Amino acid sequence: MNTYPTVTVDLILDRHTIKDVLRAVLDAILFHRLFGTVKPKTREVLGVTMPGVSDLEMEKLVEEKVDLFWKGMEGGMSKRGQIIITFSEKRPKKSWFQVYVGEEDVPWEQWIINAEMQQPRDRDRQEFDSALSDALTKAIHTMLTHTSSDRGRTAVPLITNATGISPFPIRVTVKIGGVEIN
């Protein structure tokens, strides 16, 4: 059982919006969980302004994972998938006899983006876009509520390494139909 917080964002997307929406949501999560010197940016998606991070390494990571998700959705039979972002800290790893044998990543928080791809009919487009816009607004609200809550603040371990944009390892996993893809 996980002892760390898990935050879930549920989205219903279509072919036209899937990449922009996923980029925006990943960017917003990173914006709220990177603790180095962050150069902010914004992204406008369906009338919702989403925060983001202007950093080449993070932008490359986001683009890579969104493309992987897109290819998995296009090539697979399942139209449901997840992008899971796990924030960890490095801790000393000890063997049975309390002998130090290196470091291990210990998760302290996980964000799960559940995405389902649908294709609305043309006459339903406005209603679909409005519902997606509401889901994005709810996602931002969830991020703000969690990161400013006691549980969200206390989940963050002590920052002992101030180099780079993130003092903690970040792992982003893409799953389509429950199967991890690389």
Rank of each mutant, 00 (worst) to 15 (best):
S148I: 00
V106T: 07
P120C: 06
T154R: 13
P157V: 05
S130N: 10
W111I: 09
P169V: 14
N114K: 06
S149I: 00
F168N: 03
A139S: 15
E116S: 13
D124P: 03
R151C: 00
S148K: 02
N114M: 04
Q126C: 08
N114R: 04
V174F: 07
T160A: 13
W108L: 07
P169G: 15
T145S: 14
E109Y: 00
W108V: 06
G152N: 05
K175C: 15
T142F: 09
L144F: 07
F128L: 08
I170R: 06
L136S: 10
I113R: 01
A115W: 00
A155D: 03
S130Q: 12
P157L: 05
T163V: 10
L144C: 11
D134E: 14
S166G: 07
S148L: 04
I140P: 02
I112H: 01
D134K: 13
I159E: 05
R171P: 05
R123H: 12
E127W: 03
E116R: 07
S149D: 00
H146M: 15
T142W: 06
S133F: 05
R121K: 11
H141R: 14
R153C: 10
I113Y: 02
E127S: 14
L136K: 05
F168D: 01
K138G: 10
I140K: 13
Q110N: 10
S149Q: 01
S133I: 03
A115N: 01
I176Y: 12
D122S: 14
I112D: 00
A131G: 12
P169R: 12
I176P: 14
P157C: 11
W108Q: 10
L144Y: 05
M143A: 06
P169C: 14
R123Y: 11
M143G: 03
N114Q: 06
Q118E: 13
Q110I: 04
G152Q: 05
H141K: 14
T145K: 11
S148W: 00
P120S: 08
L158E: 13
I112M: 00
K138R: 11
A115H: 00
T142M: 09
T163N: 13
P157S: 06
G164F: 03
I170V: 15
M117Y: 00
E109T: 02
I159K: 11
S148A: 09
A135H: 02
D134N: 13
R125D: 03
L158W: 07
M117I: 12
T147D: 09
I176T: 15
L136I: 03
T173S: 13
T137L: 08
T147I: 15
